[in-house]
């Protein structure tokens, strides 16, 4: 494995088996990951997207040694996550976030001190390190307050502080901004960027497309336990048929009209959605030859016609990919 790689996953399968019922129990088998292959380079933010139940948290937990793979090879920092879990644990950080995972009856500083000791941070450095991470997540002002008094955003910051306390080489962030107010979410993203600037590799799972688009030069889309795309933003745009998107809204379209739009130069794909009586057509456009004016000219006679152009977003790409996979 190259030193450049932070994560190397080959043909990873994870199956969960459980029993339902007490007396006449029924065994259920769920294949959460179905042969995942993934390479992540060091020193960047890698985004993992996917709908609920796609297997994002399962993959994150396997990478962070909290779950064993059923089969396949998983290496982080060049080490096997099963055989060398102890070595890895002191070099990776994990932020699962949420309301749970903290000792609520004691303050932030004591929470961090406990984990600093479990991570073997030298006693001579411990207090300075705690002060440093509290400052970094902007929690110094509340560090002596019990965690039970914290807001959701403050708890999230404390989770991150714990995750970076031992100066990990790679940090796994599972939905770090979910449930946060916009200000806290923005601060969290800023913090993530600053960690990358310090050389930490970030593996980020998120539901928020704009967040991935803002932070991640490269993203993978996980759907039903499989990686359905893994590319840069430009690569993904090209894959779903174009950098430009033109949206047309009116009260119904005739089939010949849709056919004419499909025939426009550079248009790779036309999809339709209904919003009650209103219908929206979305055109993916590869070239500059087709403009909103061309589209309007092809649709005469619509009283309430709206045509607008925008850049193809990660959300568009994501929805296209997940839809393709579902079909």
């Amino acid at each position: 494995m190259s030193d450049e790689l932070a994560i190397e996953v080959r043909d990873l399968v994870r199956i969960f088996e459980s029993r339902k019922g007490f007396f006449f129990s029924e065994k259920t088998r769920t294949e959460a990951l179905k042969g995942v292959d993934l390479l992540v380079r060091r020193g960047a933010i890698f985004g993992l997207l996917g709908p609920n139940g796609a297997g994002k948290t399962t993959l994150t937990k396997i990478l962070s040694t909290l779950l064993l793979p059923t089969s396949g090879t998983v290496k982080v920092l060049g080490r096997d996550v099963v055989k060398e879990a102890t070595w890895l644990r002191s070099r990776i950080g994990l932020v699962l976030g949420g309301e749970r995972g903290l000792y609520n009856r004691i303050n932030a500083r004591e929470n961090l001190r406990y984990f600093a000791d479990l991570y073997g941070i030298p006693p001579t450095e411990r207090d300075a390190r705690i002060t440093e991470v509290l400052e970094r997540v902007d929690l110094t002002w509340a560090s002596d307050r019990r965690v039970e008094e914290y807001s959701r955003g403050m708890k999230q910051k404390l989770h991150i502080a714990r995750g970076i306390l031992h100066r990990p080489e790679i940090l796994f962030l599972d939905e770090p901004t979910i449930g946060l107010d916009p200000k806290s979410a923005r601060e969290t993203r800023k913090l993530v960027r600053s960690l990358v600037a310090d050389g930490v590799t970030i593996f980020l799972t998120t539901h928020y497309m704009f967040e991935a688009e803002e932070l991640c030069p490269r993203v993978a889309v996980l759907s039903k336990g499989k990686i359905v795309a893994n590319d840069t933003m430009a690569g993904l745009r090209s894959r779903v048929g174009g950098d430009r998107t033109i949206e047309v809204e009116a009260y119904g379209f005739e089939d010949p009209e849709v056919g004419r739009l499909k025939g426009l130069p550079g248009v790779s794909k036309v999809t339709g959605e209904d919003f009650g009586p209103l219908m929206r057509l979305t055109l993916r456009v590869r070239t500059d030859e087709t403009t909103p004016e061309h589209v309007s000219d092809l649709l005469p006679g619509h009283a309430e016609l709206s045509v607008r152009e925008r850049r193809t977003s990660l959300e568009d790409i994501y929805l296209d990919l997940v839809e393709e996979e579902a079909q």
Binding site: R91, R105, L118, P122, P123, I164, V200
Partner: peptide, 24 residues
């Protein structure tokens, strides 16, 4: 931020930290 280099966790420290946390 520089990566953690060489320290190994001490079992005694883990026990001590856990004892301290239990008291708190």
């Amino acid at each position: 931020m520089t990566a953690l280099a060489s320290h190994e966790t001490s079992r005694t420290r883990a026990t001590g930290a856990s004892l301290r946390l239990a008291i708190l």
